[in-house]
Amino acid sequence: MKSGKIPNQVLQVGFVFLLVGTSMILVRQHFIPESFGELGHYRADAVGVIASHEIQFAGWQACMECHEDQVAAKNNSFHRTLSCETCHGAAAEHASGEAEEDPPLPTGRALCLTCHRYLVSRPTGFPQIIEELHEPAKLCHTCHDPHDPTPSERPESCSGCHAAIARVKAVSHHAPLDCEVCHEVAPEHFLRPRSNIPRKPFERAFCGNCHAAGVDTPANFRGVDLTAFEVPKVDQDTHGGTLLCWQCHYQHSPEAR
């Protein structure tokens, strides 16, 4: 080997590297998917493949085409937020006219209870029932039309809907008080609750009817004899400053800690 000349072994290794390198580049060019990189670092064709997935739920607008009456009734009722397929199941095949069978008409209590069984975590105000207590022998649709579920008769008690509040109140010092003791409830509330919201007392004077120092516990407060209970008294002029009662005491569980 002469100095200044590239050594043989480097030429040999270099040749192999060149061969491997070039073939890898050529192979790579050949195998990269055609649409790769068109829209970003991915196969643009994949978007179309994903978009072509088969639709299962037709959407309630599709139901409108044939079942206008039911949809209209539903849309005017408390079930207006439901989609037809929430209860009747995926019906795209039915909507396109290709299904051999009609979508199911659920008749048991199970489906309704999926949403309306009492669960403490459900939002206050959402209508919930305790399965065992609420007409256990009847099917839901005997009293409630699923497309317009407002009951034809008023619920027996407030806890039918306001279970979460009733549950708290039942173990509180205010347990003996009926809801109507504090809330003025218009009869329409039982039929159209949200458009006839009961009045909530918020003045200090209202609580003072029982709890103000120097005021005798009423023997007949809106029909309830309260003298049997030990009612805590406070001087409303000094107690709590300018705060309203409910800012510290939750009326449905008025702990004084």
Partner: peptide, 23 residues
């Protein structure tokens, strides 16, 4: 989840949104 890509590109809502009874 694809936001039901095959539905939204057709102008429909994702299935979970369509079906949610309380919106």
């Amino acid at each position: 989840c694809t936001f039901c890509y095959h539905r939204i590109t057709e102008g429909l809502l994702p299935a979970c949104v369509e079906i949610c009874p309380t919106q």
